[in-house]
Structures are given as structure tokens and as C-alpha cells.
């Protein structure tokens, strides 16, 4: 559904993205992770044809992002991280304008989405809070039932109940066959919903894989409860935290080596879990930093 090949964008001397090659398959819920300024929004704007690449190429829905922009946009629903509408426009006007440009009659679907998101579409958009403006963007992006959803920080500004309602809708669309490309800072969201993910740092791809594979390739979170006496020395342990006599740390390496190190200590209980998304993110970021 999305394929970028050595996609590069430079703003004069400033870097946007560099040699980015990613692939989003049909049916994926694909997480796109990176810190502020890493190049996530630049990538999305390139995919939507809002800006032009300096080098490289990209295809969305099998179509070229420069030559077939209009056809791509017909099959895409996009929720930007922040959005502005025309002065005096009501929510219903924003949705109708999008319907008219797309030449699709989907007023009933727009109403249904607004109801699910508890959104009053008759209010002027300029009077709406950030979260409610985001809901208008969600209605505009989803009303025509696109094959591909590109979501840039979609839940920012939404309260927890609305976040749940939003994800219910997105997962429903996914079950109906839509592919989701999600750029988010909320790593738990990526971990909970995404099948594949890419981590981007300073415009370059750090890693791209299945989410569970990313978890496998990184450190494990080890928690020891009721540790008695001195804590054994664990080779490669980091991010060590101790609360009372419960000790938790991240470790990467051979399982046998870890067991051998642990055998020198005394504790009642041991749990070894997959790290959460934040830890995976930090792991890959730190690794990349060392390499740089």
C-alpha cells in the first residue's frame, strides 16, 4: 500500500528525511515512530504530495506520489496532527466540502461517525476545542471509507473515552480491509494496535519490522522480587530500578549468561517480560546514537 525507495527530502541545508525506504503491506496497521523533528510529518506530507521529494521515489496504493497525486488522495483518508478550517465553517460544512470534492455521497456515514464521537457538527469549527476539531478531521478522513488511512498523532487532544471510541472505529475499518499508517508519540498505542512498525531518527530509518519481532530483538525487562543480600552482578544490565527489595532492569544477551549471573543472587520470584514500546524505542534510539 505504501512503498518508499530511498526517499529523501532536504530543505536547503536542513535535513527532512534521508534515504528512507519503508514498506506498508495491505492490511497492516503500521506504526511510524520517532521523536519530534525525526521526519515523520515530512514523510507523510511527501506521501500526500503536499511537498516534493529531493530524491528517491514513493508509491501509495501502487501509484506514483508525483504523477498520480489526485488518484492517491481519492483512496486515502488523512488525519493531520493539527488542522485549520476556513473561517465561519461548521463541522458539517467541512465534511460536505470534502464530500463534494471527492464526489461521494456519504452524509449518512459522516453523521454516524459524528454520533459515535459525540460531535456536534452544527457548531462553527472556530468555536471548537482542539479535541473537537480533531473529531471533525476524523469524520472528514473516514466518511468516504478509504482503503488507506494515514493518521498523524490522531488521538492527541482526545480524552480517554474518545480515544477508545476512535480506536474502535479504526479497528472496525481495519477489519473491513483498510490499511492503517499511524504516526504516533503514544508508544503504548503502537504496541497495542500495530502489526508492523518503523522507527525513524534524524530522518533516517533505524529499524522496520513486525512489532513482536522488534520486541524480540531488543532487551528484556527482568524483575526480581524480595531480593535478599547483595544484588548479583548482571552483565549488560541497564536501566536498573530498585523499590524496596524489588529490583528491575533491562538486559540483552544470552539467556544462559543471564541465568548464570542470577544464580549468584538470592530472591523469591523472577519475571522476564518483553519490554514495552517505550523501552524498544529507547533501545533502538540509543543503539543508533552509539553507532552515530
Amino acid at each position: 500500500m505504501i512503498e518508499t525507495t530511498r526517499l529523501t527530502k532536504r530543505y536547503g541545508r536542513a535535513r527532512g528525511i534521508d534515504d528512507l525506504s519503508i514498506r506498508v503491506n495491505r492490511g497492516d496497521i503500521y506504526g511510524f515512530i520517532g521523536s519530534n523533528g525525526a521526519g515523520k510529518s515530512t514523510t507523510i506530507r511527501l506521501l500526500l504530495g503536499l511537498i516534493r521529494p529531493t530524491a528517491g521515489s514513493a508509491k501509495v496504493l501502487g501509484l506514483d506520489i508525483i504523477k498520480q497525486k489526485k488518484e492517491i488522495l481519492a483512496g486515502v483518508g488523512y488525519i493531520p496532527s493539527e488542522i485549520s478550517y476556513y473561517p465561519g465553517m461548521r463541522g458539517v460544512d467541512a465534511a460536505r466540502m470534502a464530500q463534494r470534492i471527492r464526489r461521494v455521497a456519504c452524509e449518512a456515514e459522516a453523521r454516524r461517525l459524528a454520533d459515535r464521537l459525540s460531535l456536534d457538527m452544527s457548531r462553527k469549527v472556530t468555536d471548537l476545542s482542539f479535541g473537537n476539531k480533531k473529531k471533525v478531521a476524523i469524520v472528514c478522513a473516514l466518511q468516504h471509507k478509504p482503503d488507506l488511512l494515514i493518521l498523524d498523532e490522531p488521538t492527541s487532544g482526545l480524552d480517554p473515552l474518545m480515544q477508545k471510541a476512535f480506536w474502535d472505529i479504526i479497528l472496525e475499518r481495519h477489519r473491513q480491509g483498510a490499511t492503517i499508517f499511524l504516526s504516533s508519540h503514544v508508544l503504548s498505542e503502537i504496541q497495542q494496535h500495530c502489526t508492523r512498525a518503523a522507527i525513524i531518527r534524524e530522518g533516517r530509518l533505524v529499524v522496520e519490522d513486525e512489532v513482536h519481532a522488534l520486541a524480540r530483538t531488543s532487551a528484556k525487562r527482568v524483575t526480581l522480587r524480595n531480593v535478599q543480600g547483595a544484588m548479583p552482578e548482571i552483565r549488560g544490565a541497564r536501566d536498573l530500578a530498585q523499590v524496596g527489595n524489588t529490583v528491575s532492569f533491562l538486559v540483552q544477551g544470552e539467556a544462559m549468561q543471564l541465568l548464570e549471573d542470577l544464580s549468584h543472587g538470592s530472591f523469591d520470584d523472577l519475571t522476564i517480560t518483553e519490554p514495552d514500546m517505550e523501552e524498544i524505542f529507547l533501545h533502538f534510539y540509543e543503539k543508533e546514537e552509539v553507532r552515530a
Binding site: G49, K69, L73, P80, E82, S84, Y86, A94, I101, A137
Partner: peptide
């Protein structure tokens, strides 16, 4: 007025 993102993410050249 930052409406370009809304307008140009619609299928219109």
C-alpha cells in the same frame, strides 16, 4: 491561514 493541509489532502489537483 493553514487551511492548505485540509484542502490539498482532498483529491483535487
Amino acid at each position: 491561514r493553514h487551511t492548505a493541509e485540509y484542502l490539498f489532502s482532498q483529491p483535487i489537483s
